[in-house]
């Protein structure tokens, strides 16, 4: 080995040394960040997006702002709260006749089915295939009824995006992350907490 080669080896050693040092520093910072994050907030819980029906103002953006063409938000019927009214504010247009013709229906896709049970009660069932999450019925029900129709994010459709694109445009901050163990916020006795 001649002199030149030696000096070259030395040079490489120095470079290796620096490289090792920086690598150690970078490694420590990555692991440190991870550890800090873990200690600070990671709970081992997973979260999904959900709408709080008490905050929802039925603005209609859920139908248009989901990343999916078919919004993952659909109307869910909390039957527990339903008054089974003949005149349903969620089903009929204001001032309409109580007939099931399209001219009287509020739902633009006719996704609500009305079924007679017994005098004077009617059941309202949502056809989820047709529902587009426009919240018209929810608004109607909130204004004139018991608020038994809720908008909810359907987890079979939701892609659980890192940032829900509806949440970022929701005017009332009604969409938030909820624990995956309790993925729906439906009022009535389905949930443990009764509204106050």
């Amino acid at each position: 080995m001649d002199k030149k080669d030696k000096s070259r080896d030395k040079g490489y050693n120095r470079r290796d040394f620096i490289n090792n040092g920086v690598r150690l520093a970078l490694g420590v910072s990555v692991v440190g960040t991870a550890a800090f994050t873990l200690k600070r907030s990671a709970t081992g819980k997973d979260y999904v997006w959900q709408i709080d029906p008490l905050k929802c103002t039925q603005c209609g953006r859920c139908a248009t702002d989901c990343v999916r063409a078919e919004s993952a938000v659909k109307c869910v019927h909390a039957y527990d709260l339903c008054g089974y009214c003949d005149l349903c504010g969620g089903y009929f247009k204001p001032g309409a006749k109580l007939e099931t013709g399209a001219e009287n229906q509020l739902c633009p896709t006719a996704a609500i089915q009305r079924r007679f049970i017994e005098e004077p009660f009617f059941e309202y069932i949502i056809d989820e295939e047709l529902c587009i999450g426009c919240a018209k019925c929810v608004k109607g029900c909130a204004a004139f009824g018991n608020s038994s129709l809720h908008l909810q994010i359907r987890h079979d459709l939701c892609l659980n995006c890192n940032q829900c694109s509806i949440a970022s445009v929701c005017p009332s901050d009604a969409i938030s992350r909820v624990p995956v163990s309790d993925p729906y916020i439906i009022r009535g006795s389905f949930t443990s907490e009764e509204e106050g």
């Binding site: 013709g101 399209a102 001219e103 229906q105 633009p108 896709t109 006719a110």
Partner: peptide, 16 residues
């Protein structure tokens, strides 16, 4: 008029 609304509505939903 009712009939007309119904057919329009059907058309709109179909289009969608």
């Amino acid at each position: 008029l009712k009939e007309e609304i119904r057919s329009f509505d059907l058309l709109a939903r179909k289009a969608y």
